[in-house]
Simulated scan of single mutants.
Amino acid sequence: MTLFRLDASIRTEGSASREIADIVEAEWLAAHPGDTIERRHIGVDVLPADAWGHALAAGAVPAEDHTPEQRAAAALAARLVDELLAADAVLVAVPLYNFGVSQHVKTWMDLILTDRRAAPGSDPLLAGKPVVLCTVRGGAYGGGTPREGWDHSTGYLRRILADVWGGDLTVVEREFTLVGVNPALDDFADLAADMHQGAVASAREAGKALAGSRVAA
């Protein structure tokens, strides 16, 4: 069995989204020791920003007329789709950057959507496949907070992963990751600690469920 893991943090050390995803992965491996983990870290091994335009253009002309750039972009999009199709389960770790979707994740999704197997009208790419999204936010964006509604990432990710691609989605969230980093947030240390522990517990539950869903399938 194979778990595909996508990381989008620009950090390799001290990443809050990676911490939560690591817990999910550990639960998967506890249930499936020795299983394959296929990884793609798009926050570090960045996808080319111009690939989407070339892949999109490639879909409008016959293959024999593709430019080298179009050919390479279409092949990259196909590899990204292959990674998802080959996996038994999917784990995605995405931080909130500047109130929106990470550019790295947007490029990844846009490229995938150029492939005919993921195009609108095709069968859902992740139909019924278990997916865990681990997402973290530096501040607080819940109901009643000053920045309620400023998170323009999580809703979009839900829309693509679950509604467009058909994944059986579980979301693990953590807020106030900048407490202890930004002095302006020092008054929220206790609340942030509680949120951290809650996210860790949720990640363990999500990892167990992710592993169990493939056992039962």
Rank of each mutant, 00 (worst) to 15 (best):
R158S: 05
L84V: 10
K129I: 07
A118M: 12
G139H: 13
L157F: 06
D115H: 15
C134K: 07
I160V: 15
P146N: 04
S102K: 05
L113H: 11
L96Q: 13
D168G: 07
D163F: 03
T154E: 09
E83R: 15
W165D: 05
A87L: 09
G167P: 09
R147S: 11
V90W: 05
R137C: 02
V172I: 05
D151G: 04
R158P: 00
D190W: 01
A162S: 14
P95K: 11
D123M: 08
V105A: 03
L85C: 02
T145C: 02
T135K: 01
T170H: 03
K208I: 12
D151P: 02
I112A: 14
L80C: 11
G139D: 10
D115G: 12
V181M: 13
G143P: 14
G207D: 02
E173C: 01
F176E: 11
D190V: 15
R174A: 04
F176W: 14
A193F: 03
L80F: 11
S153R: 08
L111D: 04
Y141C: 02
R204K: 15
L191Q: 14
D186A: 15
A199G: 04
T107I: 13
H152N: 14
A199Y: 03
T114Y: 07
L161D: 10
A203P: 01
A162P: 00
A203W: 00
L85T: 14
S153V: 05
R147H: 13
C134E: 05
M195N: 12
L133I: 06
L161H: 07
V92A: 08
R204G: 00
L125V: 08
V81R: 08
G144D: 06
